[in-house]
Nucleic acid binder design. Structure first.
Lengths: 341, 341
DNA sequence: ATGAAAGCGCTAACAT
DNA sequence: ATGTTAGCGCTTTCAT
């Protein structure tokens, strides 16, 4: 809080009233001020090193031009691209992002939302949805502007932006089928996440359609280790499956680690397919076949919807589904019945 | 900006003056208010859903309890852990983080700093240092509280928190020497970054000490592709080196890609060692040997120094160097003279 | 222990 | 085209 050059200071130095300075320095109202005066004021402001005080402005305008973004964990690699997508769009529209991680803890999340509310953010982008989420419905009742990204939250009528999970899953399974796989595992996340549930439902459906056996294994959370332990447990019994489709690249990575620890080759023994196509998925060992989800665009679109809501006041409770695509790499290949090897 | 329940509202409902409510609700001043009154006020505030307005508070206090964090790019995987380290420490002390990416562009950076200054952040943590940095020295002149993380900025006397680059480099080279490598490449970043320069200087020195040949190749920037093209260029001529030590894991990853494209095996033909030990370095193909830098701790320590400066006003222009360690994985192995294969 | 009053820096009526 | 005034919600001296 240095730089306490105020409008008043500039006004005195320029020999005008501070209201005039305010008008001259704001592009919106500049036109109403004499051109000469604008130039003089601009020059003086520059010389004095004037920096407008947005806290004061926010107080007066009852708007901070700031948006709270709630994510589970910045170190989960799917979020940095999403956050950048949000930031870039919002910056263009004059908004600044306040970021908060929750580590999937409802308490931390409540705390984060409270903290951001105290800072009077104009709205939220929430990527921590869950069907049993307690806070999001309450935010809706209070009329707080929110856009959901990535994960839904039960049937709260907030706008939701996601990738096309169904199409992605269908593409992945069809691909495995074409390779000859008939008995596969779906490595799922916790079932209270909408993404998890949608993906699990869809893979089951497609497998049935194609006459494939699909067993669902639920990991405890969405971190790599949870994927590893789930697959470890799976491999205690005799193996009949030839492929693992994971709900998330992190879980898929966990699967890769488990296979390696069990001296199973990927893809010769077991094919692995992830979901999201996280950064550097191509560099894993082996390169991970995955469903590419446009994370940056999801962020940007969520930001766009929020800005619309904020500026035009219209609440458009609609679901925006962005297209995804299967990216084939080295972790997937033809099926060989395990008992044949 | 919903929830416009103000102190005044609570005061009326509780039958006291708003000043009393202010005192009652602030832990610092609570003791001065009658205990009964505090309880009553707390209850009323709760019932009314009062949320304190930090913009108003900031204006009055001339302090926003926010910190601006300037990084090159959130999608560079070394930054999320650092940012979380910063966030976690600052949150514990009541501060909120405003994050800004610069994409290494001086213009975007100036814009970011201006924007955060307008929001009246109490101080900055800057991870975009460069020796020819124009803005940082000016911030110092203006007395703006700043702590540098990761990279220095010429000789501006701001505190700086980094990993022990010299020790890390020494460990990496000594290890290569022990494996029999005598002719190596240092894949460096742009020379205006202090990290790059320090690492390059140190590797040259250690190599000389140990009687090894070290050729320095400078990548255009710190992204993966720059590493790939640098090594591509290198491989146009007959190869004499047996190992590549990269200034950064991203550059090392670029090197791995180039080697693969040239059908060179890693580590059998060429060993590769990175720097930073970015998340998932272990999962690359092959697992990347790297110098582990405590990114989260660097962030936390930078935050700690900034809070000290902010709260006790003391400017401690000191360099804090955190210990690093070599993590050996599959990308490094014994040296075989290229002409022998 | 509580109330009254001033003021942080800004913008937007309203007045001239 | 510019000046005057009020007030956004809060904290803090000063009174009582």
């Amino acid at each position: 809080m240095k730089n306490q050059v105020t409008l008043e200071d500039v006004a005195k130095a320029a020999g005008v009233h501070k209201a005039t300075v305010s008008r001259a320095l704001n592009p919106e109202t500049q036109s109403v001020v004499n051109e000469q005066t604008v130039r003089r004021i601009t020059r003086v402001a520059e010389k004095l090193g004037y920096v407008r005080n947005l806290t004061a402005r926010s107080l007066r305008l009852q708007s901070t031009m700031t948006v709270g973004v709630i994510i589970p964990d910045l170190t989960n690699p799917i979020f940095p691209p999403m956050v950048r997508g949000i930031e870039t769009y919002l910056a263009k529209h004059g908004y600044t992002v306040l970021l908060a991680d929750t580590d999937e803890s409802p308490e931390e999340e409540k705390e984060a939302i409270r903290s951001l509310s105290e800072r009077r953010v104009d709205g939220f982008i929430v990527a921590t949805g869950a069907d049993d989420h307690e806070t999001i419905p309450r935010m809706f009742e209070q009329g707080i502007p929110v856009v959901l990204a990535n994960r839904g939250a039960g049937n709260v009528p907030y706008p939701l932006v996601t990738g096309d999970d169904e199409a992605g899953m269908r593409a992945a399974v069809q691909y495995l089928h074409d390779l000859g796989h008939r008995d596969i595992i779906h490595l799922a996340g916790p079932m209270n996440f909408s993404t998890t549930r949608i993906r699990t439902r869809e893979i089951a459906r497609v497998c049935q359609e194609l006459g494939m056996t699909c067993r669902v294994v639920e990991a405890e959370n969405l971190r790599v280790d949870a994927g590893t332990s789930a697959v470890n447990r799976l491999l205690e019994a005799p193996r009949t499956f030839t492929a693992i489709q994971a709900s998330t690249d992190l879980l898929a990575l966990g699967a890769l680690r488990s296979l390696r620890a069990h001296d199973l080759r990927c893809p010769e023994d077991v094919s692995v397919i992830g979901f999201n196509d996280m950064p550097f998925a191509a560099d894993f060992s082996p390169g991970l076949t995955s469903v590419k989800v446009p994370l940056g665009e999801i962020g940007a679109e969520a930001a766009r919807l929020l800005v619309m809501r904020l500026q035009e006041g219209k609440n458009s409770p609609r679901v925006v589904t962005l297209p995804v695509s299967l990216v084939v790499r080295q972790s997937s290949g033809g099926a060989y019945a395990p008992w044949a090897s």
